[in-house]
Amino acid sequence: LEELEQFARTFKQRRIKLGFTQGDVGLAMGKLYGNDFSQTTISRFEALNLSFKNMCKLKPLLEKWLNDAE
């Protein structure tokens, strides 16, 4: 759980530094990986307001997006 919290904080910082909005991330993930995510989902991930199971599902996709975006 602590690792997920740390990743969520780091993800938000890096996303902002790269100049992407939460909506940009959701749209890009849909185009790149075929998984559409709303701005609300990205927001809830960053705020740790998703279930642990959903956080675990999203983490690898967000890590991949972040690596591809950098």
Rank of each mutant, 00 (worst) to 15 (best):
F45H: 00
T41K: 07
Y33L: 12
E5I: 03
N67S: 04
A28W: 08
D24W: 03
E5N: 04
I42E: 01
F37G: 03
T10C: 08
I16N: 13
S38I: 06
Q6F: 07
G19M: 03
M29Q: 02
A69E: 14
G19I: 01
F45E: 00
Y33K: 09
L18K: 04
L62S: 01
K59A: 07
E3G: 05
E2C: 01
W65P: 02
T41Q: 09
C56I: 07
Q39D: 14
E5R: 13
K53H: 14
K59R: 08
T40I: 03
M55H: 05
K64Y: 03
G23A: 15
K53D: 10
G26A: 09
K17V: 09
K59P: 01
R14H: 06
A28S: 08
G26H: 06
R44F: 04
N54T: 14
Q6R: 12
G19E: 03
L1K: 06
K53S: 13
Q6I: 11
L32I: 10
G23I: 13
F7H: 02
L66T: 02
T41D: 14
N49W: 03
G34D: 09
L4T: 06
M55S: 09
L62A: 05
E46C: 00
T41W: 12
K57M: 14
L4W: 04
E46S: 00
L62Q: 01
A69T: 15
A69D: 03
I42R: 00
G30T: 14
I16P: 01
Q6L: 09
K17I: 08
G30K: 08
G34K: 06
E5T: 06
R14I: 03
M55T: 04
R15V: 01
K53V: 12
E70F: 04
E2Y: 06
E5Y: 05
F11Y: 01
T21M: 03
F37Y: 10
A69W: 06
F45C: 01
A47G: 13
R15W: 00
K53C: 07
R9H: 03
L58W: 13
L18Y: 05
M29W: 02
E70G: 08
E3L: 06
R9P: 02
T21L: 03
K17M: 13
L61G: 07
K53Q: 14
Q13Y: 05
G30H: 12
T41S: 09
S38W: 05
S43M: 12
E70K: 06
G34T: 07
G23D: 09
P60R: 07
L27G: 10
G19P: 00
K31V: 06
K17C: 14
D68T: 06
D36I: 09
Q39L: 10
E5S: 08
F37N: 03
Q22D: 04
Q22S: 07
K17A: 10
E2M: 15
N54M: 15
M29D: 03
F52W: 12
L32P: 04
R44S: 15
G26K: 06
R9W: 05
E70Y: 04
P60M: 04
G19A: 03
Q39C: 08
D24R: 04
P60N: 04
L32G: 08
F7N: 02
G30W: 12
F7T: 03
L61C: 14
E70H: 03
L4H: 15
Q13D: 11
L58Y: 05
S38Q: 10
R44M: 13
K59I: 13
E70N: 09
G23F: 13
F20I: 07
A8W: 02
L66P: 01
F37S: 03
R44Y: 11
N54F: 14
G23V: 11
L18R: 04
L27I: 08
Q22V: 09
K64P: 03
E5F: 04
F37V: 09
G34Q: 15
G19C: 02
Q6H: 03
F20A: 13
K59Q: 07
R9K: 13
L62F: 09
T40G: 11
L62M: 14
N49Q: 15
M55L: 12
T40V: 15
K17R: 13
S43D: 10
A28N: 07
Q39E: 14
R15F: 00
L61I: 05
L18V: 03
A8H: 01
N35M: 10
K53N: 03
M29S: 02
L61M: 11
L27P: 02
M29V: 13
F52G: 10
D36F: 14
K31Y: 04
E70T: 07
K17Q: 07
A47H: 05
N54C: 04
L4Q: 04
T10E: 14
A28K: 12
F52K: 11
P60C: 04
C56M: 10
L62D: 00
I42F: 02
L27V: 14
P60T: 09
F20C: 08
F11A: 05
Q13A: 12
E3C: 04
V25G: 00
T41L: 11
Q6E: 10
L66G: 02
F7V: 03
S51G: 10
M55E: 02
W65S: 02
F52H: 04
S51E: 14
L48D: 03
K17D: 14
D68S: 09
R9F: 08
A8P: 02
L27F: 11
Q39H: 06
F52T: 15
L50D: 07
C56Y: 04
R14K: 14
G23E: 11
F11D: 02
I42T: 02
G23M: 13
L50N: 02
D36T: 15
G34R: 06
L18T: 04
W65Q: 01
A8C: 14
A28V: 13
S51V: 02
K57C: 09
I16R: 09
Y33E: 08
L27D: 12
S38G: 14
K57N: 06
F52R: 14
L62K: 00
L4P: 02
T10V: 11
F11T: 02
G26E: 12
C56L: 14
T40W: 11
Q6M: 14
I42H: 00
N35K: 08
Y33V: 09
T10K: 12
K17F: 07
S43V: 07
R9Q: 05
F37Q: 09
D24A: 08
F52P: 06
G34H: 12
N35F: 11
L58H: 04
N49F: 04
M55G: 07
S51L: 01
A8Y: 00
L18C: 04
K57S: 09
K31L: 07
L48Q: 13
D68E: 10
L48P: 02
G34V: 05
K31C: 10
S43F: 04
F45L: 07
N49C: 14
T21F: 01
L32V: 07
R15Q: 00
Y33H: 13
P60S: 08
A47E: 15
G26I: 05
L1E: 06
F52D: 09
D24V: 05
D24H: 09
C56G: 09
K17T: 08
F37P: 03
S43G: 13
K59L: 08
K31Q: 11
L18Q: 10
Q22T: 10
L4R: 02
Q39V: 13
E46W: 00
G30Q: 15
E5K: 15
I16D: 06
Y33I: 08
L61N: 13
N54P: 03
E3A: 06
D24Q: 13
G34W: 04
